[in-house]
Simulated scan of single mutants.
Amino acid sequence: MRYARHSPMVPGRDMLLAAFRGLPHDDHPMLEVAGELAQLHEMRERTPVHEMAKLDRRRAQLVRGIDRWVTLAMPVPGTAALMHTETVGQIVDRLARMTSQAFVPLSQAPEAVFYDAWVQLNELADTYQDLVDELRDGTRRLPESG
């Protein structure tokens, strides 16, 4: 992942959701990572338990990379900024997992089950967008990345 102070802004929810599904997107480091996270979550569903550690290490690397990129791309928050409970990378990873679960295994599920998963995914995507907007405004800060 490339890091630069003058990188493009953090992508919005719709671009991120499209990247999870492998749809074409702008050349943006977070969108590339988002697509890889979704692929890792899909692979995780088919991977034996004793082989998951390698996938999880890669996911952790990608999450930390997102967090470093966001730290460099966003303005320094104000002193009164409230602490969020998760990092952007952690939310992106959860969104990647939810997307892979909603669009692959649940595609054959009853409509009500698919709809419920889609509602949860949309709510988390809104949380992501709200956090990005608050970070951009300097009214929210992030916990230390793990």
Rank of each mutant, 00 (worst) to 15 (best):
M1V: 06
R2K: 14
Y3N: 06
R5W: 11
H6G: 05
M9D: 15
M9P: 14
V10T: 05
P11Q: 08
R13F: 01
R13P: 01
M15E: 14
L16V: 07
L17S: 11
F20P: 00
R21L: 12
L23Q: 10
P24H: 08
D27E: 13
D27H: 14
H28K: 13
P29A: 08
M30S: 02
E32S: 12
V33A: 13
A34S: 09
M43H: 08
R44A: 05
E45T: 07
T47D: 00
H50Y: 08
A53P: 02
K54Y: 06
K54C: 10
L55P: 11
L55A: 13
R57I: 11
R58W: 03
R59N: 12
R59Q: 15
A60E: 12
A60D: 11
Q61H: 11
D67T: 06
R68V: 05
R68K: 05
R68Y: 07
W69E: 00
W69I: 02
W69Y: 08
V70A: 02
T71H: 12
M74N: 06
G78L: 04
A80V: 03
A80E: 13
L82I: 04
M83F: 08
M83Y: 08
H84L: 03
H84F: 07
T85S: 10
E86K: 06
V88W: 09
V88A: 02
V88L: 05
G89K: 03
G89V: 00
G89N: 03
A96D: 04
R97F: 14
M98E: 09
M98A: 07
S100M: 14
Q101Y: 11
F103T: 00
P105Y: 02
L106D: 00
S107T: 15
E111V: 14
V113N: 06
F114L: 15
Y115A: 14
Y115D: 14
D116C: 10
A117W: 04
W118Y: 15
W118E: 15
V119R: 13
L121C: 05
A125L: 04
D126K: 14
D126M: 13
Y128T: 01
L131C: 00
E134R: 00
E134W: 00
L135F: 00
R136W: 09
R136Q: 12
T139A: 09
R141I: 00
R141C: 03
L142Q: 03
L142F: 05
P143W: 05
P143A: 08
E144N: 09
E144Y: 03
G146V: 13
